[in-house]
Design a protein around this nucleic acid. Structure first.
Lengths: 405, 405
DNA sequence: GCACAATTGTTCTAGACACAAACATATTGC
DNA sequence: GCAATATGTTTGTGTCTAGAACAATTGTGC
């Protein structure tokens, strides 16, 4: 019953051990930026000669390139540096209430291009997809000429089923059950995956930002449209059964609080909000940067009270999270970073005294480091992940002649 | 041609791929109990012939044995069943406020022996270790004759640093900074690891109990000494930076609540407690079984109110946990299982309406299934884990001489 | 009952791969 | 310059898994 064998076009399957080792090396280079061959040998524990052949294969595939050794300081033969190829890249898409941002991120986490398309009103899923597809179509000739695209990653502020890329509910965008990944994939012609924006932010901060190197971190982002969270445990993003995990914005922090749009009462997101701060600071419209400036210079008692109140609720949520996760780091982004900057010692102290001895002992709070590139890097990681799991697999998908970086 | 080579005493290191495959097979057999060779072939995706040689090696090592095929129903040559060897076993130790329980659990999760040693007062760490060591010494000749022991696992109700086996703080036992793993290891002569009891309970329920087969579950246990929790995410126990993760008993559920022994206010553990229920039910002393009987037959309004109150707080904690983890299952043990049994539909309904759409959609609540064997199985898993990671490695460690103590 | 299909264990062979050893190369320190 | 050190490179070897061919065992159709 066996016809000759599987179709000849099928990619040559390498042994799992080879695939695993290539994946390991590529991931290291991607996440560290530059590493010497000797460093790679030490990090992987592989043999010198093995690393040699593996790097050779990666170079032949065009995934990394080697440069002349730095050549100073060390005794012994200098080891060439291995860089991620800038021509391997992923597309990133981030729809928000007032814009759709499209980015091009190359291996190594470098944002090569970022295009923010402002919208007059909140975009529908279809509109967001069309905008993204149009921008990508515009870049198409450049992409085909100079890049190998691993796919598209989409960061959506809402509940996203990571398995099928369906947005279950994005309250601030007003989306419900939108299969955005499939829509964008069909419209743009690249494979696409979607996930919650804060989860991707957590991943980006873990790999390239404030939490670099930590295995356990909590990322909390406060924006115009609420509070999102992402949790990294043991180096892995917490996904949950469908990829909905991480909704720390709906932590219970107050008995008898207002009803949240999620249906419950006393959620962190309803008690701690940027809009209330903006209002008190006398800013009718403004972003996080404006807010920070206003709050730092304000001496109004009303403002100070509100800041203290919000810090108290933030503390309850963080205490909870620390007890549950025992993280090494907490990364605060957006206006939550602003709040923390206003009174860092108070939050540090309260957390230390109120959370349990063990978990609180080591935790450190950081402000986010990646700024506006964060979402692009996080979303791109979504498209890099399958590629990193089998770097040689992309070889078969290679598009027309690339130019060297 | 062959220079000295590495010292002859060094264990023969198999290739990582062989080790990995042996580990995979052994874990499957351990967690499923019995599997046919054909099933193993399908589950692992390995070749028939490869599975053959691997099973052969495991049989030679005495880790599994084969039995005659069931021989019915299926067309084709019958495939022999592969069983975990009952002679491979781990020791389990669980100190509590009124007893120390020592168990012997064999591969496959079967509790072969369980000895409960009642204590007149709360045991100190030294006393608990001495009791365990004495019981193990008593079993020593039997262990040496009929078992291969992978090690000792200890389940402690408190914060345990999993890396070094130090109990940071066990409030109900009154232990602080006790290096119990090292102490017991020295006293009993077997390698020992320690972890939080509820975390191990979660793992046991995942592998052998109510949550079998689920990748994401939350386990909550309510006992005489408070509420402990364990979280399984993507098939892995959440450990956190030091293994302290999972303290769901200290989730914030009430503004202005009493101060908990942990230093914070409004913890789940202070609002939902077994002792208050026992009191109202008129039981001066009693365990969970007594309580369940009393509550089910009681018609006192006072009791009903208290049950409703506790259910409300439990719901807040569960809602939080569901939003954060997006689990498939919640497993309630101890008196929390009792509470749930009293009004299952109310908890189900509230959870569905108050938690966010996505995460709550799929979650199911179960009562724990393993009963009193739970802690033994969970603690033993602690000692099985390193063995399962390298099953062939144990062969070299096989004991013959008993003297160690 | 007997032939045939279906499924699985068994044996043998070949290809892939990582490692170790020996050799080559490049830099530091004296 | 020369030794010491560290690393790239080349070559051979042992291990391991997949695949093919064959054997064994059961169900099914006539």
């Amino acid at each position: 019953m066996m016809p000759p064998r599987t179709l000849a076009s099928a990619a040559r399957e390498p042994d799992p051990s080879r695939r695993n080792n290539l994946s390991l090396l590529t991931s290291l280079v991607h996440h560290h930026g530059v590493l010497s061959r000797a460093q790679l040998t030490r990090h992987t524990g592989l043999n010198r000669s093995t690393v040699g052949t593996l790097i050779g294969q990666l170079v032949a595939l065009g995934l990394v390139y080697e440069s002349a050794p730095a050549g100073e300081g060390q005794v012994g033969r200098p080891s060439p540096n291995v860089h991620p190829s800038p021509s391997v890249a992923a597309l990133a898409v981030n729809p928000e209430i007032d814009a759709v941002t499209i980015g091009l991120v190359s291996l190594g986490g470098k944002v090569q291009k970022k295009i923010r398309f402002d919208t007059e009103r909140i975009p529908s899923a279809r509109e967001a997809v069309n905008i993204a597809a149009a921008v990508i179509a515009g870049m198409r000739s450049e992409l085909d000429a100079s890049y190998r695209i691993t796919g598209i990653g989409m960061a959506v502020p809402g509940l996203v089923n990571r398995d099928d890329g369906v947005v279950r509910h994005a309250p601030h965008l007003g989306w419900r059950n939108e299969p955005v990944a499939r829509m964008l994939s069909e419209a743009a012609g690249y494979p696409c995956q979607a996930a919650n924006d804060a989860s991707l932010g957590a991943e980006a901060e873990l790999l390239f930002g404030a939490g670099a190197g930590q295995g356990n971190l909590i990322y909390l982002n406060g924006g115009a449209s609420g509070i999102g969270g992402g949790i990294i445990s043991d180096g892995q993003l917490l996904r949950g059964a469908s990829g909905y995990a991480g909704e720390l914005g709906h932590t219970f922090v107050r008995s008898g609080g207002k009803t949240c749009h999620c249906g419950a009462t006393g959620c962190l997101e309803t008690e701690v909000s940027q809009s209330r701060l903006l209002e008190l600071a006398g800013l009718t419209r403004g972003d996080t940067a404006d807010l920070e400036k206003a709050l730092a210079t304000s001496s109004s008692a009303e403002v100070n009270d509100e800041v203290a109140r919000q810090l108290m609720f933030l503390d309850i949520a963080l205490r909870n999270a620390v007890n549950i996760f025992n993280p090494e780091a907490i990364v605060l982004d957006g206006f939550l970073g602003t709040l923390y900057a206003l009174a860092p010692e108070s939050l540090d102290r309260v957390l230390l005294s109120q959370a349990m001895d063990g978990p609180a002992g080591q935790v450190k709070i950081y402000r986010a480091a990646l700024g506006s590139d964060l979402m692009m890097i996080g979303a791109a990681e979504l498209a890099f992940t399958p590629f990193l799991a089998d770097p040689a697999g992309l070889g078969t998908t290679t598009r027309t002649a690339p130019a060297a970086g």
